[in-house]
Design a protein around this nucleic acid. Structure first.
Lengths: 183, 183, 183, 183
DNA sequence: ACTCGCGGGACGACCCGTTTTT
DNA sequence: AAAAACGGGTCGTCCCGCGAGT
């Protein structure tokens, strides 16, 4: 389901296509997901949260400045987009935009996914010496930038927006006088 | 249709609901939009592009630093979200994420919408003395930040992400030494 | 739909079978019945109410005692059952039994159908000189007898229960001393 | 299953609901009922046959005229309906009407159920001195009246039809000159 | 000339009664 | 005894044309 949400959105991800792709019979779906599409989507969002978090965790193990690390994540995302010919997007974003009004459950799953990423980035920034409050604000901004850049990159079929975001993120986290500027 | 796309996404915006909301008969839809839902969506995206562009244009007429102006736009967006109880999102984002793979036509409409905003912001920044290449990069990053922040704010039902983005944008465009840092 | 309800019950009357039998496409169904199966069933019940009422009205135009007239109706029903090889039953009864708990709307439609028959019989009995209160009670009993007899006849695949009911009804309405007995 | 058939009909009584209500695992159903839903329904009908027969047997042990006894049964049925807020009906009737055409097996189970009641009533009437042939005819009519009255009472959400049937039954069996009238 | 009632299948999610595996 | 798999079925709704109306 994850891949289908990424390419077609939540509403566009038909359960028939889901079970076909999993080469599973239709009847078994409601045994594993008795609450239907919504809980399936919830799990897909949670899975996406884990995967992208792992991607970030892995990036933090590389050496380099915080800016290098975060820009590296953005470049990896860009590479994924190119790899898939710009046919995929962030599943959490699209579910948020489609179902934010209808399903509190899915909205909360998306919120948790974003939070997990934001918290990870914030913790990482704190680890590099950034003050906690600023780290949280930066983390919020950075995750937002990534989400937005993915969307614009997809619309344009070009990684330029992601690269611009990478450069801007590097600028934000790597400047020596950041604390003073915000003071 | 615009409102429905904002709340339910493109796939979720059924034409039945559209014509009901417009209190128009269903049969007349294909007289006005012979090419069906896709062209209707295209028009909705174009309309959204205009509206948000107007919002930005209006903001530039206020006095204050470039950071003030851009942060003002973000705060206006935040106010809209609160006003609508976080039930709406950016229609261009959701159409991009849902239809980017299926409909080249809609993808291009979204790309144009984003471009119009980015170009406007870049032109504005150039007008405030920013060097052209940097202005374009910043404009890309800023529009991306806005889109991303809207999504996360909606998921969280909180304007905190938008406010964080506003602060970060202000930090980006208002620092005196920005050119030097990027050099 | 009426025939399907009579043979398979309301739940057993699939809309697919309904539209097949009417050689109509499924999509057109919800134009004529926007509220779905329930309103379709409502209309089927109303149609049945009319048809059987007409059958009774026609019977009253024949000469003979009240007992003859009512027994004649029962024999007509018996003939219908034989004709259809006991594959049909009263649609109002089955809808009442299946949906009485779920759908107030259908329950009321069934109630109205029964009432229309009971009122017709009661009015007829009053016309033959029966006192009003007794006419109403007898009419209730007679319609009840018919419904019950149809069911048992169907279960048995024999018209004997309907014939027994016919004889009993004749006994009830044609005895000269009925008023005295009830006094 | 019996209760579900009484409220929702046979088709409406899903096996999922049945096993939930019995707090039994779904997989075990086909261990106990290898032939599936049909045999389960058959057993439910047989169970209902026993229960209502017991109700009648018990009533015959009370003193009073035959009319008193039979009217007493009708009043007990009316009390049950009121008790359950008119949400239940006769399971045998509804199975007959829904499955009479599809399943010979269930039809015969229903026929047997009706027969057992009719035979019991006929035997009782013979015991009170009624001539055998008339007793059988009356028993058929009485059971039919009860079934019909239950249905109409349920549709109306009122015990009036059952009370009318009770009065009529009393009139039928308690009049002194009944034999002469039928002669 | 243009509107719109009405029709038209295909597919949506969901759940059915059943069987196979453990 | 029961967990898990299995398709076909449920009702409802999708986006879309045809042709009779003013």
């Amino acid at each position: 389901m994850l891949e289908l949400i990424q390419t077609c959105g939540y509403s566009g991800a038909g359960l028939t296509a889901v079970v076909d792709r999993a080469s599973a019979p239709k009847g078994s779906l409601y045994f594993h997901f008795p609450e239907g599409k919504e809980s399936l989507g919830e799990q897909a969002v949670a899975l996406a949260a884990e995967r992208y978090a792992a991607l970030f965790t892995e990036a933090t193990s590389t050496r380099g400045s915080a800016g290098d690390v975060l820009a590296g994540v953005l470049h990896q995302v860009a590479a994924m987009l190119v790899d898939q010919d710009f046919r995929i997007g962030c599943p959490v974003s699209v579910v948020t935009l489609e179902m934010g009004a209808d399903s509190a459950r899915l909205r909360e799953a998306c919120s948790s996914a974003f939070d997990s990423w934001i918290d990870a980035v914030a913790a990482y920034l704190v680890g590099t010496g950034v003050e906690a409050a600023r780290a949280k604000r930066l983390a919020l901004s950075i995750i937002g930038s990534i989400e937005g850049a993915i969307i614009i990159s997809r619309a344009r079929r070009s990684v330029e927006p992601l690269e611009a975001a990478a450069a801007t993120v590097r600028e934000l986290v790597d400047r020596p006088d950041q604390a003073r500027v915000m003071a």
